[in-house]
Design a binder for these strands. Sequence first.
DNA 1: ACAATAATAAGATAGTTGTCTAAATATCTA
DNA 2: TAGATATTTAGACAACTATCTTATTATTGT
Lengths: 90, 90
Amino acid sequence: MHDSLFRALADPTRRRILELLSERDRTAGEIAEQFPVAFASVSHHLGVLKAAGLVATEREGQFIRYRLNTTVFQEVVRYFMKSFSGGNDA
Amino acid sequence: MHDSLFRALADPTRRRILELLSERDRTAGEIAEQFPVAFASVSHHLGVLKAAGLVATEREGQFIRYRLNTTVFQEVVRYFMKSFSGGNDA
DNA sequence: ACAATAATAAGATAGTTGTCTAAATATCTA
DNA sequence: TAGATATTTAGACAACTATCTTATTATTGT
């Protein structure tokens, strides 16, 4: 479990970004317009999420499309269940 | 999902504390001696974990015994599975 | 090539956090 | 009550982070 992963999850704006991406893929601009902070700030958050492996990107012309990396989430769930849960499924 | 929960999980020392507690309950001193930082620093981490609801305490004479609150971990797993996972069990 | 749009990067700053030492609180035992 | 042990709290400080504005890079269309 990398440290960057949990640090990335520790910010509420980033968790909200992940929730948005769980609905559907979105461009950086579509994500940014959902938040009352500067465009560049959201871009910073996207960079943190990408560095943590939680999202992946693909350029589409002028746009950059973000999508969830669901594999990493499954690893997080596995970590919690293995290390901490009472052994029951959730 | 409280913010304090994810912030608490974001520190590697605190995650290690949780792993120790998943083996068995421990006093603050037993926990602190596992780390190369000052006793007071570990106490600070324990306070963060407690504020996040991840651990609970019980005084036993001079000692204070810490234990995992497994319910909260199950809630975290549920949050991840509901919000982000591909829907498969881990 | 030039202007417009999309997005990131750079640099600055305020707020948060992890760590330390020293002081305080709580319990036990003599 | 006094001293010893266990733990937390207080205060200070360096490192990190979220945010902002400005500058830069990449792509599109004319």
